[in-house]
């Protein structure tokens, strides 16, 4: 994995008391914020596109500290990107640029790029997938957004769709996985971060006992993945879009073992670092003097200029 990539949780903590004097506090609309905290009080997640547009600059400002930043690339969900292209006013792309430039006066250039398809660009450049194997279906599963796109062998986008708050990692953990745990255990946390830890470690700590939860994990995936796949294929069928290969990228790739997939079509699931593929693709799409931010609803991935 590229050493120049990092991530923090996409959380905003509204500060109070003496904390507002902290050096890392970022001011916005009369409040002071700190980003990336996962425990404590007054923590908010970004929830929708409006939040992305309004609050992304807080993450950028916090991460670059006081460095005068001139050029950045930032991501938005695939569908929002390509539908913006069709709008006269530039849609979310222009709103994001305007918000960043207004709140970071040193900014001279802002490139807005599409999540998911940027990841495919990186995978092709790295020879991890071959466009000649046919149209590429990309399932970019994030915290609460799944970006779906189909790209042809020249890189032309044939289809995009983004599913919000239905089939993301958050839903897998808090609905499907938690439901399975509840069958055996009376009290199960609703905290997505704790559920993530239990899921990935495959065991739950119950005081004097540690219990293996592999079966619950498998059952959660057995319910969740068919729903995700069915949703994807149903939409593609409706639009009569075909694909010759597929890739899972984004945080969801940590939850899918390639060995449980059997397909006659070539496919790719990264074994590690799946959440950074969009960021790496973005870095390849812009010049070296850009700072790059892939702003997701779960994590903000970032890489500073070379």
């Amino acid at each position: 994995m590229n050493e120049n990539v990092n991530k923090i949780a996409s959380t905003l903590t509204k500060l109070s008391g003496d904390e507002i004097l902290a050096e890392d506090a970022i001011e916005f609309e009369g409040f002071k914020y700190r980003v990336g905290e996962t425990s404590g009080s007054n923590i908010d997640y970004m929830y929708d596109l409006k939040d992305l547009v309004n609050y992304s600059h807080i993450f950028v400002r916090s991460l670059i500290k006081n460095r005068p930043i001139k050029k950045i690339a930032i991501s938005i969900p695939t569908e929002a990107y390509y539908s913006s292209k069709l709008k006269e006013d530039g849609g979310i792309i222009e709103k994001m640029k305007e918000s960043l430039k207004r709140n970071i006066p040193t900014l001279e250039k802002v490139r807005v790029l599409p999540q998911g398809t940027a990841a495919v660009s990186h995978l092709v450049m790295q020879n991890m997938i071959n466009p000649k194997d046919g149209n590429i279906l990309v399932i970019d599963g994030g915290f609460n957004t799944v970006n779906i796109s189909v790209t042809n062998e020249a890189g032309k986008i044939l289809y995009t769709n983004s599913i919000h708050d239905e089939l993301g990692v958050y839903n897998l953990l808090t609905e499907y996985f938690r439901e399975e745990l509840k069958r055996k255990h009376d009290e199960v946390t609703t905290n997505a971060q704790m559920l993530k830890e239990i899921f990935l470690k495959e065991k739950i700590d119950l005081g004097f006992n540690t219990v293996n939860i592999i079966r619950e994990k498998e059952q959660a995936l057995a319910t969740f993945l068919p729903k995700l796949i069915e949703r994807v294929t149903r939409e593609l069928k409706k639009k009569k879009i075909e694909f010759g290969q597929f890739v899972f990228v984004g945080g969801i790739s940590y939850y899918i073992d390639k060995n449980i997939i059997s397909s006659s079509k070539p496919f790719f699931i990264p074994e590690e670092g799946g959440e950074f593929l969009t960021l790496l693709g973005m870095k390849e799409m812009v010049d070296d003097d850009y700072d790059v931010f892939d702003v997701g609803f779960g994590d903000v991935k970032y890489s500073f200029k070379e």
Partner: peptide
């Protein structure tokens, strides 16, 4: 294999 995904079987 099929338990998790509705893919080729």
């Amino acid at each position: 294999k099929a338990k998790a995904v509705a893919m080729d079987v």
